[in-house]
Write a protein that binds this DNA or RNA. Structure first.
Length: 389
DNA sequence: CGAGTTTGACCCGCGC
DNA sequence: GCGCGGGTCAAACTCG
């Protein structure tokens, strides 16, 4: 009986939420609960409760069977509602991610910050090529990359100052929450990003005898960026650095490179994955820096193939594992997106300044890398990878 | 003496 | 509600 009461309470909550949702979605029409499946269920439940018992001896049996039926109905409704909620959440996340990404690009393309913007753009470009070549096959409905080429950013240039502040705050909040974890050898140049960090705490985390150090960026005034540094439990030569937030000031080139990398990885995350790990080429394993609920991107630069995969001409499509979001298989990406890859490849190969920035950016990331031209050639020639023909 | 580090205490979110 | 663990704070400490 208590279970039934609990179920009814759950249903009442669901009913209220559903009515609110339909109210919001359909402002012009008065929502009718009776017209919904949930409403029908609730109605039938109420009617069942009101029906007087016809036979006192059969009452317990009837009640048991009716309760079982009710439970089954509630289960079905729960499944339907969960499915609906999942769909809505997915669509909302996809839209929000696209919005935030556009905001990021808008921010980076602000005047007086061309070098930073260009470096970030090139990093983002590389990562989004990975998306196009790998994720898009599974989630073609999230084609953030197209925003770069189709000038969607320009459409937002005329927004009001107030809207801009709100957008910036939304972006800051999202970047503050998302994290990028970089796993690299201690001797790697990546570990010294030449940013000024102030240590504010140290803690021994569970499962790793090595202490985790907490740092704040000390370069700008009230810079929100924090990082955690910890040696890997399995191999103490490997340092795991987790970055959180965006710098609110200009950075020296090495720090800028890292910031661009993390920014691009964040953008990657914004494509819809709660925790994304680049495997083989940029990463070999999923790593969770803490039990935090913050979504985390892991860039694993410790694998021997990490550098060679990019610096050599064997630019292989990345095996990519996604966690946290249900995978959808909706076929191959549209030809439009394939063309976009070509368009941007052409832009990079023909624009010397863009190419130079990208070269220096990759060089700072992978010391022995060759120039970007080879990568673009490879990318263009590898189109057959997901060309249906 | 000031800047940076250390370290124990505290806060808060999450799971049971 | 309680305990656990990650993250942060701030006083004490160190160093140049």
């Amino acid at each position: 009986m208590e279970g039934k009461v609990a179920l009814k309470k759950m249903l009442q909550v669901q009913k209220r939420a559903y009515v609110n949702t339909t109210d919001a979605l359909n402002q012009t029409e008065e929502p009718s609960i009776k017209n919904t499946t949930l409403g029908s269920t609730l109605l039938s439940l109420s009617l069942n409760n009101l029906e007087p018992p016809q036979n006192h001896e059969q009452q317990p049996l009837n009640k048991l069977s009716s309760l079982q039926i009710e439970i089954e109905e509630v289960k079905k409704e729960n499944q339907n509602l969960r499915h609906m909620l999942n769909e809505i959440t997915e669509h909302y996340a996809a839209l929000q991610n696209q919005f935030l990404l556009v905001m990021q690009q808008k921010k980076l393309s602000s005047p007086g910050n061309n070098e930073d913007a260009k470096a970030s753009l090139t990093y983002n470009f590389l990562f989004f090529l990975y998306i196009e070549k790998n994720i898009a096959r599974k989630k073609p409905d999230i084609c953030i990359f197209s925003y770069y080429v189709e000038g969607e950013i320009n459409n937002l240039q005329g927004t009001s100052q107030e809207a801009k502040i709100i957008e910036d705050q939304a972006f800051e909040a999202s970047c503050r929450k998302a994290r990028v974890s970089v796993k690299a050898r201690a001797e790697s140049s990546l570990m010294g990003d030449e940013c000024q960090w102030r240590k504010y705490g140290q803690k021994i985390a569970k499962g790793n005898p090595c202490p985790r150090a907490y740092y704040r960026c000390n370069m700008g005034t009230a810079c929100p960026v924090r990082k955690q540094v910890q040696r890997c439990a399995e191999d103490e030569n490997i340092m795991i650095t987790t970055y959180e937030g965006n710098h609110n000031h200009s950075l020296p080139p090495p720090a800028r490179s890292m910031a661009c990398t993390t920014s691009a990885a964040l953008s990657m995350f914004l494509s819809g994955s709660t925790t994304t790990t680049f495997s083989n080429s940029l990463s070999t394993s999923t790593y969770y820096p803490s039990a935090s609920s913050c979504p985390t991107i892991t860039l694993d630069l410790t694998h021997p193939s990490s550098a060679s995969a990019i610096s050599s001409n064997h630019f292989q499509p990345f095996p990519l594992s996604l966690h946290g979001y249900p995978q959808q298989s909706k076929g191959l990406p549209s030809k439009k997106n394939l063309d976009l890859v070509d368009v941007v490849c052409a832009a990079i190969t023909t624009d010397p300044s863009l190419k130079a920035v990208l070269d220096s950016a990759i060089s700072s990331l992978i010391p022995d890398s060759h120039n970007i031209h080879n990568h673009c050639s490879q990318l263009s020639s590898s189109r057959s990878y997901y060309d249906p023909s």
